[in-house]
Each structure stands twice: as structure tokens, then as C-alpha cells.
């Protein structure tokens, strides 16, 4: 029998398999279980009341509100445009399509601080348009518009990336049938394409949400760190931690981690659901032949 893989016929695990399982538990335990356990232990070090008090502090509340606002705005904008971009790239073939696909992927490979820096180059005090805009009373850098732009950049590709493979696989038959029946563009998008891609869309939206909530580097560069004004939850965590307010920092970290993990957890559920629903093509053609 094979030393490296379990044989389905044998009930006993081989020594090699036991070693492998032990190593897995060790790695997972040390690298992946300890950190979240530590977050909650540190948060509750002075008791639940202290933890709750630190996340209901005015600056903390304002950070939570700003994070939720920025996340909502980024999700709405990037989802609206991301859906149109996925439609364009999935349903049409045209010159330059490959370039667009590559451009949409770029933000994934960009370091978070670079994603923040680029906005300062445009709107910072030494940026191209920063001063001009300042004179007419528009502030983007070190203010919420800058935070939103940085978040938009960082979460840019997710909706399109999750939708595109599925929408390509679906082909154009249903859309062509709909247009022959007289449906307009919006009707086709809303009534035909998106309902059939709903789980992928939801998954992309949740991924965007998780990343938008947790973004630190990019936002840190453009925010200006004004507590109560331009501090999001991750930035507030940094401020608290650097100010040796460990319990408060970890309480906030625990809240943010719960929010992000819940979002990601929901996404795994939907993705499992998506995999269960066979792709459109396989199904409608499945009659035989």
C-alpha cells in the first residue's frame, strides 16, 4: 500500500499519514489559530465591559461610522461599474479587450502604500491639481474623498473578476433570445444576465466589502490620521496600539476581524451554492445528443 496517500480500503492510518496530520495540526495551530485567539484574549484582558467601552468611545464610533460609509460607497461605485465592465468583457469581442482586462487586474499587484501614494501625486499639496482644487475649496487628500479614492483603487477588480469567468461561460444565447423578444439593454442586464449570475455577483460584492473595511496601507497614506474625522477602523487600531492602549486596540481589532470574517464566511457559503448550481450552458444543453 502507498505510504503517502491513504488507501480507502484500509481503516488504519499509516505512520506517514499520521505524521502528516500531526504536522498539519502544528502548522495550523501555531500559524493560523494562535493569532485570532490572541486578538480576543487581548481584547477581553480587562473584561467585556472595558472592551465594549473602548469601542463605544466617540473616536471609536466615528471610526466605525467612517469605515461603514467608505465601504458602502466603494461597494456601490465599484459594483455598478464592475458589472458593466464584466458585461462588456464577457459578451463582446473587440480590439483592445485584452488591454482592458489587464488594466483592471493591475490594482491587485499594487502595494497598498502605492495605491495611496498615487492619489497624493494627483491631489496632495505638491500634487498636480491639489493646490488648484484647494483654492476653490475642494480638499481630497487627507480627507474623506481621498480615503474613498484609495479604497476604490484597492477594491477595483473584485466584482469584475468574480463575474467575468461565469458570464463568459454563460455565453450570449440568453441575451440574444432576450433582445429578439424586444428587451432593452437594462432589461437584459437586470432581467436575464444578473439573475443568472447572482451568486457570483454577491461573492464579488462581499469580497469588495471585506477588502474595503480592512484596507490599511492605502488609506493610511491619504488619510492624515485625524482622530474623529479621517480615521477608519484600521487606522484607529494603529493609533490606539501606538498609544499603548492595547485593550482598546485589540477590542477594535476584534470587532473589525469579526466583520471581515463574517463577510468572507458568507462569501464561502455563497460560493458553495454557486458551485452547486450548474453553469447555464451545461444545463440547457443537457437534454441529450
Amino acid at each position: 500500500m502507498n505510504a503517502l496517500a491513504s488507501s480507502p480500503s484500509s481503516d488504519r492510518r499509516s505512520p506517514a499519514e499520521i505524521t502528516l496530520i500531526a504536522a498539519t495540526y502544528a502548522i495550523v495551530g501555531l500559524m493560523l489559530v494562535l493569532p485570532p485567539v490572541l486578538v480576543f484574549t487581548e481584547a477581553l484582558r480587562s473584561g467585556l465591559a472595558a472592551a465594549l467601552a473602548s469601542i463605544t468611545d466617540p473616536d471609536a464610533l466615528s471610526a466605525i461610522r467612517l469605515t461603514l460609509e467608505m465601504t458602502a460607497a466603494a461597494v456601490i461605485i465599484n459594483t455598478s461599474f464592475g458589472v458593466l465592465a464584466a458585461w462588456l468583457l464577457a459578451k463582446y469581442r473587440f480590439p483592445g479587450r485584452g488591454v482592458l482586462v489587464a488594466l483592471i487586474e493591475i490594482p491587485i499587484s499594487v502595494s497598498p502604500v502605492v495605491a495611496g501614494l498615487v492619489w497624493l501625486l494627483l491631489f496632495g499639496t505638491q500634487g498636480w491639481w491639489g493646490e488648484a482644487l484647494n483654492r476653490i475649496g475642494v480638499t481630497i487628500a487627507f480627507a474623506t474623498p481621498g480615503i474613498l479614492l484609495a479604497t476604490l483603487f484597492v477594491t477595483f477588480p473584485f466584482v469584475t473578476r468574480t463575474l467575468l469567468p461565469l458570464m463568459e461561460q454563460q455565453g450570449r444565447d440568453a441575451e440574444e433570445a432576450a433582445t429578439l423578444l424586444g428587451a432593452s439593454f437594462w432589461r437584459i442586464l437586470w432581467g436575464v444576465t444578473l439573475p443568472e449570475a447572482r451568486w457570483a455577483l454577491l461573492s464579488g460584492v462581499l469580497l469588495t466589502t471585506a477588502r474595503a473595511m480592512g484596507e490599511f496601507g492605502a488609506v493610511s497614506v491619504v488619510s492624515g490620521h485625524i482622530p474623529g474625522l479621517t480615521e477608519t477602523m484600521p487606522l484607529h487600531i494603529e493609533t490606539l496600539y501606538n498609544g499603548y492602549q492595547s485593550v482598546a486596540a485589540f477590542s477594535m481589532a476584534a470587532l473589525l476581524a469579526i466583520m471581515a470574517m463574517a463577510t468572507v464566511g458568507m462569501r464561502s457559503l455563497f460560493e458553495a451554492r454557486m458551485r452547486r448550481e450548474e453553469p447555464r450552458k451545461a444545463e440547457t444543453a443537457g437534454g441529450g445528443a
Partner: peptide
């Protein structure tokens, strides 16, 4: 004249039924 204004009935090889309806 775009397809939607031609009012022809078209049946696709794989039927292209809307599976969410």
C-alpha cells in the same frame, strides 16, 4: 434594424431558456 425591432420568432439550438424564470 436591431434584432429587437424585427419581431421574428427565434428558437435556439440549446433553447436559451431563462433558467431563473
Amino acid at each position: 434594424l436591431p434584432p429587437r425591432e424585427r419581431n421574428v420568432g427565434f428558437v435556439f439550438q440549446n433553447y436559451a431558456l431563462f433558467r431563473h424564470l
